[in-house]
Simulated scan of single mutants.
Amino acid sequence: MKRRYQINGISCGGCVARVKKTLEGHPDIEKTEIFLAPKGATIITMKEKLSIENIQKQLNELEGYTITEII
C-alpha cells in the first residue's frame, strides 16, 4: 500500500538518507521514496496502513522533521 506524504525539514541529500533509514526501520514500512523536488515530497510503501501519528513517532527518532499526509 502506497501513501503520499510531505516531510517538513528536508533540505539536502543527507536529510533524505537519514529520514529514509529511520522510517524504513519501522517493521511495517517496506520502502520510502523522498524527493528534493518538490522538497520533502514522500511516498511510503507499507505492509498495512499506519496512522500519521505512528509514522511521526518513528520520525521523532530524528529531530526537526514533521510529516503530513497528502490527500
Rank of each mutant, 00 (worst) to 15 (best):
Met1Cys: 05
Met1Ala: 13
Lys2Thr: 09
Arg3Asp: 13
Arg4Gln: 06
Arg4Trp: 07
Gln6Asn: 09
Gln6Tyr: 13
Ile7Leu: 03
Ile7Cys: 03
Ile7Asp: 03
Ile7Ser: 00
Gly9Arg: 03
Ile10Val: 08
Ile10Thr: 02
Ser11Gly: 04
Ser11Gln: 06
Cys12Phe: 08
Cys12Ala: 08
Cys12Ile: 00
Gly14Leu: 01
Cys15Asp: 05
Cys15Leu: 02
Cys15Tyr: 01
Cys15Trp: 01
Val16Met: 04
Val16Asp: 01
Ala17Phe: 00
Ala17Cys: 06
Arg18Leu: 09
Arg18Gln: 10
Val19Ala: 06
Lys20Phe: 05
Lys20Met: 06
Lys20Thr: 14
Thr22Val: 03
Thr22Trp: 06
Thr22Ile: 03
Leu23Ile: 07
Leu23Pro: 01
Leu23Ser: 03
Glu24Arg: 03
Glu24Ser: 07
Gly25Ile: 06
His26Phe: 07
Pro27Trp: 15
Pro27Phe: 12
Pro27Ala: 12
Pro27Ile: 14
Asp28Met: 13
Asp28Ile: 02
Asp28Asn: 14
Glu30Thr: 12
Glu30Leu: 13
Glu30Ile: 12
Lys31His: 14
Thr32Asp: 12
Thr32Tyr: 13
Thr32Val: 15
Thr32Trp: 10
Ile34Pro: 00
Ile34Gly: 01
Phe35Gln: 10
Leu36Gln: 04
Leu36Gly: 05
Ala37Ile: 09
Pro38Glu: 12
Lys39Tyr: 09
Lys39Gly: 02
Gly40His: 09
Gly40Pro: 01
Gly40Lys: 05
Gly40Thr: 05
Ala41Ile: 07
Ala41Arg: 15
Thr42Arg: 08
Ile43Gln: 14
Ile44Gly: 07
Ile44Glu: 09
Met46Asp: 05
Glu48Asn: 10
Lys49Cys: 01
Leu50Gly: 04
Ser51Phe: 12
Ile52Gly: 04
Ile52Glu: 10
Glu53Cys: 00
Asn54Thr: 08
Asn54Phe: 05
Asn54Met: 05
Asn54Gln: 15
Ile55Ala: 04
Gln56Lys: 09
Gln56Met: 02
Lys57Val: 05
Lys57His: 14
Lys57Asp: 08
Gln58Tyr: 06
Leu59Asp: 00
Leu59Ser: 00
Leu59Val: 00
Glu61Asp: 15
Glu61Trp: 13
Glu61His: 09
Leu62Lys: 02
Leu62Asn: 03
Glu63Ile: 01
Tyr65Val: 02
Tyr65Glu: 01
Tyr65Ile: 06
Thr66Met: 10
Thr66Gln: 15
Ile67Trp: 11
Thr68Gly: 10
Thr68Phe: 06
Thr68His: 14
Glu69Pro: 06
Ile70Thr: 15
Ile70His: 13
Ile70Gly: 12
Ile71Trp: 10
Ile71Leu: 08
